[in-house]
Amino acid sequence: MYLFSLSNTKNLAEQICSKTKLKLGQHQAYRLSDGELYLAIKNKIKGQNVFVMGSTYQPDNNIIEFLILINALKENGAKKITAIIPYFGYARQDKIDRAGSPITAKLIADLFKTAGINQFITIDIHSQRNEKYLGPKLINISCLSLFADYIKKNIDLRNCLIVAPDKGAKPRALTLSKLLGKLPIIIMQKIRIKQNIAKVMRFKKAIAGKNALIIDDMIDTAGTIISACQELQRHQVKNIYVFA
């Protein structure tokens, strides 16, 4: 069984193959004079189940190559194609947040399925909406159990609380709280001032002297996390730990 990979996840793919019975698939890819991508599969995969891996960080540079690779696998007769996507680009554009905006996350999911994907494997996909877009066979791997193990070994839980920097992080905060013996939770309010700039608003709860465990799915510009830390410091928390 083969695992094919974009160049941006090749090192990870090689590590996976070294620890499993998967073989690293080979394909040829280069740019034509007008900038188009030419791609061809080198392995015989007809009738086989295959995996294909790639990160869609910097999505406009990587999604087209990903789609062409997937479709090449389909056209070469792959029986089932499972996509492993550590970072799913456009996942945050999962709803209409203002008049005139599209649901780009759904569009990207539909493009992947049209190209030939039968199943997706993701890591902490941004929202339950994205889980719906990717379909019922989605395997969404959560890092929360890893975070919980680290916290138990390295942080004194007797004086801790879990902080969700916005409402979107609430489900993760609830799950982490359960894994850590039902620690108290604070849900902060966030106001998005403009694109990539957000301010976390204050909350009414006495937390001075506590250790705050902030949980979120990702850090991009870190604006939300920094704003949350500043607000927690204003409330005189003892220590701040960030998990994302």
Rank of each mutant, 00 (worst) to 15 (best):
F112T: 01
F112I: 01
K113A: 07
K113F: 03
K113L: 04
T114D: 01
A115M: 00
A115P: 03
A115W: 00
G116I: 02
G116V: 03
G116Q: 02
G116S: 00
I117Q: 01
I117T: 04
N118K: 04
N118V: 06
Q119Y: 01
Q119S: 13
F120M: 07
F120R: 09
I121K: 09
I121F: 01
T122R: 07
T122K: 05
T122Q: 07
I125H: 04
I125R: 03
H126D: 07
S127R: 07
S127N: 02
Q128Y: 09
Q128V: 08
N130W: 06
E131K: 11
K132P: 03
Y133T: 03
L134H: 00
L134S: 11
L134W: 00
L134C: 09
G135E: 01
P136M: 06
P136E: 15
P136T: 14
L138P: 08
I139D: 13
I139W: 05
I141M: 07
I141W: 06
I141P: 08
S142R: 06
S142V: 06
S142E: 08
C143M: 11
C143Q: 03
C143V: 12
C143E: 09
S145L: 08
S145D: 13
S145V: 12
S145M: 06
L146A: 12
L146M: 11
L146P: 03
L146C: 10
F147M: 03
F147Q: 00
F147C: 02
A148K: 02
Y150V: 09
I151T: 02
I151A: 04
K152E: 14
K152T: 14
K152Q: 13
K153W: 10
K153S: 14
N154Q: 14
N154E: 13
N154R: 11
N154M: 08
I155V: 15
I155H: 05
D156V: 12
L157M: 10
